[in-house]
């Protein structure tokens, strides 16, 4: 995915988001659904074999999730889990994890 497509997707995601109803902490809340496997705030336990998402570039996270969703990236579980999140939610998640130190 190039930068322009990415920007378009991001714009779409924003446009598609609910107008006023969204909880201001929704990115945090969504990220907590990943923490069971990937660690609190994306800080996976070192050496436990799970991908640490905290601090990964936003574009990388978006791309991975889109590839899982499209079946373009091999996975055991993530091709199923990734289908549960909308484009807008993927954007929120990716931005949130990217911002974690």
């Amino acid at each position: 995915m190039n930068r322009l497509t990415f920007a378009c997707l991001a714009a779409l995601a924003l446009a598609a988001g609910p107008a006023a109803a969204q909880d201001p902490n929704q990115a945090r809340n969504l990220a907590a659904t990943c923490a069971n496997c990937h660690g609190t705030n994306g800080h996976a336990v070192p050496g436990a074999g799970m991908a640490a998402i905290a601090g990964q570039p936003k574009e990388t996270i978006v791309q991975r999730l889109q590839e899982f969703r499209a079946g373009k990236r091999e996975a055991t579980v993530m091709h199923q889990i990734a289908k549960g999140y909308t484009d807008a939610q993927v954007e929120l998640l990716a931005a949130w994890f990217a911002a974690q130190k």
């Binding site: 069971n36 496997c37 660690g39 055991t76 579980v77």
Partner: peptide, 19 residues
Amino acid sequence: RNELEGTYAAGWAKNIWAD
């Protein structure tokens, strides 16, 4: 059934206990 998910199951446990 596969061994890769065997390692993920163990990794899952470590991560959720920490979480």
